[in-house]
């Protein structure tokens, strides 16, 4: 599984990245977590409100600072 957190370095983007790392660890997933900061790449996902969460190239959340429980739920439902 490839997980990308889209964000240019604002507080909530960093927070989401940390949350995702934590969730992956707690669920014991074999996943690669990438923090995508390049604007051109971010725009290719058509996300206008950051932070965005992309799993295997599919946008699953935009503009939300998800909680640990929410991220876990999203990840477990994949």
């Amino acid at each position: 599984m490839e997980i990308k957190v889209l964000g240019t370095g604002c507080a909530s983007c960093k927070a989401l990245y940390e949350t995702v790392l934590q969730a992956v660890k707690e669920l014991g997933l074999d996943a690669q977590v990438i923090k995508e900061e390049d604007m051109m790449n971010i725009m290719s996902y058509n996300v206008m409100i950051l932070p965005g969460l992309v799993i295997d190239n599919k946008v699953v959340s935009k503009g939300k600072k998800l909680s640990l429980t929410e991220v876990k739920e999203i990840l477990s439902n994949r």
Binding site: T8, C13, M43, M48, I49
Partner: peptide
């Protein structure tokens, strides 16, 4: 729309 300064560029490009 809730505004976060970090979203102004993606919004601009998106539009």
């Amino acid at each position: 729309t809730p505004f976060c300064s970090c979203s102004s560029i993606p919004l601009f490009i998106g539009f």
